[in-house]
Amino acid sequence: MKYLTIDTTTKVTAVALAEDGRLVGEGFLHTSRTHSERIIPMLDQLLTAADWSLQELDMIGVVRGPGSFTGIRIGIATAQGLAQVLKLPLIAVVSLDTLAWAGLGRTEDIVPLLDARKNEWYTARYRWTRGEEKAECLTPPQALPKDQWLEQLRVLDRPICFVGDAIAKAKVQIEEVLGERALILPDYINLPRGAYAVQAVWQRWQETGVGERVEPYYIRFSEAEVNWAKKEEARRSEGHE
């Protein structure tokens, strides 16, 4: 079964081709260009290089967040557009679950950190057990203040392997809190790669076996919604006095 995957939830544009869970080709760009400029040319280049045609594909996979709101939407709009025309099933996976594949085979807990701005990370915690085909999710995806999350991890008193695009800036802070228990993998493993999406999508396909209606997974409400809810709350509590 042939498929392609798209991950544009961070500043990396990651497109990959795969067959039955086996990586066939991948594109990785971490430059200042936008996803919108890169994604179709990258896909076109990969297909040509692999000597594949779009008509050979059996499925489209996409990473639906959390991450950059705009990036999430570009990835989904692209994957949906391809799937709609080619009449292919669409499979969506979560960015943090996908990044857990960067730590396959490690004995430490795997903690992906994605930049969520406002001094927060999108994060979760996973553990690979020898012989298991899937990382177990121990702490589900959420947006958390950096210091609060590091404190939670410190209390766990376990070795932790960090992955994700927020690592580069967080290294000092992580090591300050967790010291020797923190393991930080290099960039080429840390950043979202097509190879990881290929794994996560294949796993989900084997669990579901059918395409799905894909919606963005933002975790956070938009600022306007949050502010409006706060105002409503204030208005309501005033009314009760």
């Binding site: 996803h35 919108s36 994604i39 179709i40 896909l43 076109d44 779009l54 939407r73 570009i74 709009a77 692209t78 994957a79 949906q80 557009g81 391809l82 709609q84 025309v85 080619l86």
Partner: peptide
């Protein structure tokens, strides 16, 4: 959203 979707549709 429109540009990405339209581009993918046209390409496919």
């Amino acid at each position: 959203v429109g540009v990405s979707g339209a581009k993918a549709m046209a390409y496919a």
